[in-house]
């Protein structure tokens, strides 16, 4: 099979770009642990409020300074609807849904996860800029979807 010289060069270049892209992602994954939220944990969506993991919601500060946020995403609100966390410490979010699929995005940050009923979403993030952040539901969940939001306040060193 005859392949034109320029096309041959182009194909090597294209192969190189693909490898470069994958390499970049690979390095970020291995060296900085940049993994998408992939926590595997199940929960019965029909008894979320009774489940001890979600019976009490809100922010807990651990002795080492890190924070944990327990939240429920439901039609059409987040519980609790306003949270305060300290800046510059790892904050672990744990979320689930008692009804349909929702999204959870902290606008202006990398904080983004799907919230799927029957599963617990979990991810950890550190906020270095104090201020008020908008949290949106970014998956269609019914006619109130565009009203489903919450507020995150990141406070200067606790």
């Amino acid at each position: 099979m005859h392949v034109d010289l320029y096309e041959r060069i182009w194909m090597w270049g294209a192969g190189g770009i693909v490898i470069l892209f994958l390499g970049t992602i690979g390095v970020a994954t291995v060296s900085q642990g940049r993994l998408p939220p992939s926590h595997v944990e199940t929960i019965d969506p029909q008894s979320v409020f009774a489940d001890e993991r979600f019976a009490e919601r809100g922010v807990t500060i651990h002795p080492d300074g890190s924070a944990e946020v327990i939240m429920i995403a439901m039609m059409f609100n987040f519980l609790p609807n306003e949270i305060r966390v300290p800046a510059n410490v790892p904050v672990t979010f744990r979320l689930t849904s008692p009804d349909v699929v929702h999204g959870f995005q902290i606008v202006g940050t990398n904080g983004n996860t799907m919230v799927v009923p029957g599963y617990v979403s979990q991810f950890t993030i550190t906020f270095d800029t104090p201020g008020e952040y908008l949290i949106t539901c970014n998956e269609y969940c019914g006619l109130g979807h565009h009203n489903m939001s919450a507020t995150l306040i990141v406070e200067e060193g606790a």
Partner: peptide
């Protein structure tokens, strides 16, 4: 489904390779 819970990161990575 990168942002989905319940799917281990390793599988997401494998599908990323084929995607590129």
């Amino acid at each position: 489904q990168f942002m989905d819970p319940g799917i281990a990161a390793g599988w997401k990575m494998a599908h990323t390779i084929a995607t590129f």
